[in-house]
Amino acid sequence: MIRFILKRILLLIPVIIGVSFIVFALLEAAPGDVADAIIARAGEVTAEDIEAIRAAHNLDRSMFYRYGVYMLNLIQGDLGISDITGLSVWNTFMQRLPNTLLLSFSALIIGMAVAVPMGIIAARNAGKLSDNFASIFTLVGMSMPVFWIGLILIQVFSGNLGILPVAGFDHGWRSLILPAICSGLSLTASTARQTRSSMLEVLKSDYLRTARAKGTSEDMVIRKHALSNAWIPIITAAGSSLCAQLAGSVVVESVFAWPGIGRLAAEAVFARDTTTVMGTIILTTVLYVLVQLLVDVLYAFIDPRIKSQYMNTSKKKKKTGMEKEAAAA
């Protein structure tokens, strides 16, 4: 198990190199450079100042040189300091991260609480009214842009009813409600569909018949036997939704002015704040890969087959070692 986790973490390295290079190259390709961005903000600057800035950022060297410098700093754990705000990228990210985590997990809880029962009910009543109703709901939910859902929520709850704040972060838990519901709804649609289809698959299986044949109540057949097997695809769906939430929360965070990492990235791209964009994307990628790893580890706890797969690799090694010893004796 530990070997598996270590291997996955080692695989992060090429991903980080690839991601950082692609993003770095794209940012370099954008018209204008850091110097322009700084100058645009600073107002009056002399030619010497410009030269100094350019030299400080190695703008007279090749792109690969600058990338090399960046990666060298990255290896030492230094994500750099924003040229625009003058703040450490690491600190800014860590300051924003809890907000995104709060929003994502609230959304996940809301989404799962609605989606899983809905998917189960739909699967058990496949083809009937409640199934059709659920499938219309999920299809429409999947087809609506998240920002539109957010705007409708704002319009109804803040505009018409006036009971919740429009946006921002200053009203405590009341600020959280709308963005969490908005992300949660978009998560519900895909998770409910996944739950339905994996339940349908499981409901056809022979072991449910075995369970019924020994007098297990229908309720227990569903809760214990069916759900325990349906969890894996559901968790996959929820896991990738969570990844999408964490990494792609740009839209929801922008609509609700929620100070998370998605909005940080969007603002940084807008301000041509190269250092912050790089740092944010790299850290988001790490986060993304870690969540996926977490999901994979979760499987092992749910499915004994996968668990023994992980175990076997290390067990076999031990066994062969023991056999060698036995042979030597």
């Binding site: 090429p14 991903v15 794209l26 740009v250 998605g262 994307i281």
Partner: peptide, 16 residues
């Protein structure tokens, strides 16, 4: 690598 960059942010960077 491509999959682990959030789609919207990748889009923003490419468009910019």
């Amino acid at each position: 690598i491509l999959a682990s960059i959030p789609g919207i942010i990748l889009g923003m960077v490419i468009v910019s």
